[in-house]
């Protein structure tokens, strides 16, 4: 499967190390489901797996939020409007938006983890009456590391959402919460017996979030996590993304927690 050239329509700086690319397909838009990812190819530098963070109902505009942390993503940061980038995808198992219909949707995210969940927020808001409460709990490193701040504020002001956020460290001018995202869970407003929980963040953050959700009484088969492993081919051939029996490029990245409970937290799996 070859990369398909896309034109960069817009580059938006989100934080110190994070930026959002809006891409226009040179030929035909690809339908995607919330949680899926693309392999983005930077000419000569290589490929990187990046989740899709745009609106699933508007696939003509392909949106990716990228954190510049490796060779490829650093090269990606240097790209400008009008440059081209290669895209393969979309790949992977999506967030359970269908299963969530009629239930409370609880999203717990940390850092760049908000990006893969943003399509879920768009989807729920676009189909608002199909879902119960929409809860978003978001943790970031510092106030300056938060993504999509203006949009976040719009979500927060809506009467039909419960949105809370926290940072790990802040100066005195910060009036929001300080502390880890798991501390937001006990007081969050949702029905644990009828909720689907979707978690995206560093593995350790997800581990403590699952524990906190269990304390709230959410059963493990209602919890979904997005796992990360090295991604090379994205077509179940290179072996890199294995997590126990799962190929994260197709069985994941989103996995139902009870299916990986025996592996999760085991070292170096």
């Amino acid at each position: 499967m070859l990369p398909v050239p896309h034109r960069i329509e817009r580059v938006r700086r989100e934080t110190r190390d994070t930026f959002t690319l809006e891409l226009a397909p040179v030929s035909g838009a690809a339908i995607f489901s919330p949680g899926q990812f693309n392999m983005l190819y930077v000419f000569g530098a290589g490929e990187s797996a990046i989740s899709i963070s745009g609106h699933p109902g508007r696939p003509e505009k392909l949106v990716h939020t990228v954190r510049a942390v490796g060779v490829v993503t650093r090269a990606m940061r240097k790209l400008k409007r009008g440059d081209s980038i290669g895209v393969r995808g979309p790949f992977g198992a999506p967030w359970p938006v269908d299963l969530s219909e009629g239930r409370d949707v609880v999203l717990v995210t940390g850092g760049i983890g908000l990006a893969p969940l943003r399509p879920v927020i768009y989807h729920v808001l676009a189909n608002r009456n199909k879902y119960g409460k929409l809860v978003l709990l978001y943790g970031a490193r510092t106030p300056a590391d938060r993504l999509y701040t203006r949009e976040f504020e719009r979500w927060r002001r809506r009467p039909d959402t419960y949105i809370d956020s926290t940072v790990d460290a802040a100066g005195r001018d910060w009036t929001g919460n300080v502390g880890v995202v798991t501390r937001l869970i006990p007081r969050a407003d949702f029905d644990a017996a009828n909720a689907i929980v979707m978690i995206c963040g560093p593995e350790i953050m997800m581990r403590y979030t699952v524990a906190e959700m269990q304390k709230r009484g959410v059963s493990l088969d209602r919890i979904f996590v997005s796992m990360e492993r090295n991604m090379k081919c994205a077509v179940v051939a290179c072996g890199h993304c294995q997590y126990g029996p799962h190929f994260l490029c197709s069985d994941g990245p989103v996995l139902r927690f009870d299916r990986i409970a025996g592996l999760f937290g085991k070292r170096e799996i």
């Binding site: 190390d17 942390v69 940390g110 943790g139 970031a140 963040g201 560093p202 350790i204």
Partner: peptide
Amino acid sequence: AERLLATRLQLLDVYGDNS
């Protein structure tokens, strides 16, 4: 216990460059 755990997680700087 809850505060200690939360503080440890904060110390890990899980969203930092080296996480």
